[in-house]
């Protein structure tokens, strides 16, 4: 063994050790408060569980998963949720990127705009819901504006055809500023020297954007899209409030997490609820992996 490889080996061990040390707090806390609960959930998904009063676990094998096949509401909820994800995620990502680019430009009053744009994110969700009820109300602000421009008006809260669209708009409006902030933070890290070099090479504003800014933002965009997908797949609050928890009318606002919630807390059918959760997790994982291929994220080595 040469001296050099000995040295490299020692360095590798040291490197690995420091890696684990860096991860220690995370591993402990996530292990106890997230992985353990998830493992518990996985075990319960194969049982029929009664936790209230007389605690009983009855192993039922795949029964909970067979049940999913025959449960038409799962398919409906999945379809609603997918539709929601497919529309909301691209729009909110693009909007966030656009806002961040605009606010990163050296224009006057940008810090004022930054605070104003961020307001929806700091306002509590109870208040946001009320505000939207007020805006969506059949004689509310939105309809007033629409009728002013002689556009058709809707009963945004009562009509299922538009209720889901109303939820989408609200979600985009409330989430985009959040992602805008992350984009803004990432934009600070773009090395100025790259732009300068590009300028010398005669690149235009758009050219710089396509060749420097966008590639640089790729890892952050991956994060934002994944978080957007996870967040929208877990849509619950709004559809709960809009439908009073039923997911109606005729399942129009039923989402996967609302369905899981109904089974877990209304019916106290934990085993089945957890089986559904596993399926949801599988779907999101698949989408994320597809997405990762798409973004072609660089590997560590």
């Amino acid at each position: 063994m040469t001296l050099k490889s000995e040295f490299l080996k020692r360095r590798n061990i040291q490197e690995a050790l420091s890696g684990y040390l860096f991860m220690t707090p995370t591993l402990i806390v996530l292990g106890i408060f997230l992985v353990l609960p998830v493992l518990y959930a996985i075990v319960l998904a194969f049982h029929s569980v009664n936790l209230l009063g007389e605690v009983s676990y009855r192993f039922t094998g795949l029964k909970n998963f067979m049940r999913i096949q025959g449960d038409e509401r799962v398919a409906i909820a999945l379809k609603n949720t997918m539709q929601y994800v497919a529309i909301v995620v691209p729009i909110q990502t693009l909007l966030a990127l656009g806002l961040a680019l605009a606010l990163n430009a050296k224009i006057k009053g940008r810090s004022l705009f930054r605070v104003a744009f961020f307001l929806p994110t700091v306002t509590s969700s109870a208040v946001l819901t009320l505000i939207f009820m007020w805006i969506y109300n059949s004689n509310g602000l939105l309809n007033n504006v629409l009728s002013f421009f002689s556009l058709p008006t809707y009963n945004w809260l009562g009509d299922p055809e538009v209720a889901l669209r109303g939820i989408m708009i609200m979600n985009i409006w409330a989430t985009a500023p959040l992602f805008m902030v992350i984009y803004l933070a990432a934009l600070q890290d773009v090395p100025e020297s790259l732009y300068e070099a590009a300028s010398i090479d005669g690149a235009t504003g758009w050219g710089k954007f396509w060749c420097i800014t966008l590639p640089f933002l790729r890892p952050v965009t991956f994060f934002i899209v994944v978080m957007g997908i996870i967040g929208t797949f877990q849509l619950f609050d709004q559809s709960y409030i809009f439908s009073n928890g039923s997911g109606g009318p005729n399942n129009a606002t039923l989402t996967i997490v609302l369905l899981i919630y109904q089974y877990a807390f209304k019916n106290l059918d934990m085993g089945y609820a957890l089986a559904l959760t596993l399926v949801l997790a599988l779907v999101i994982m698949t989408v994320t992996i597809i997405q990762r291929q798409f973004f072609g994220e660089e590997r560590l080595d």
Binding site: V35, A41, F236, M285
Partner: peptide, 9 residues
């Protein structure tokens, strides 16, 4: 871990 809804854990 991110994927699991908070209601469940």
């Amino acid at each position: 871990v991110l994927v699991v809804p908070a209601q469940i854990t």
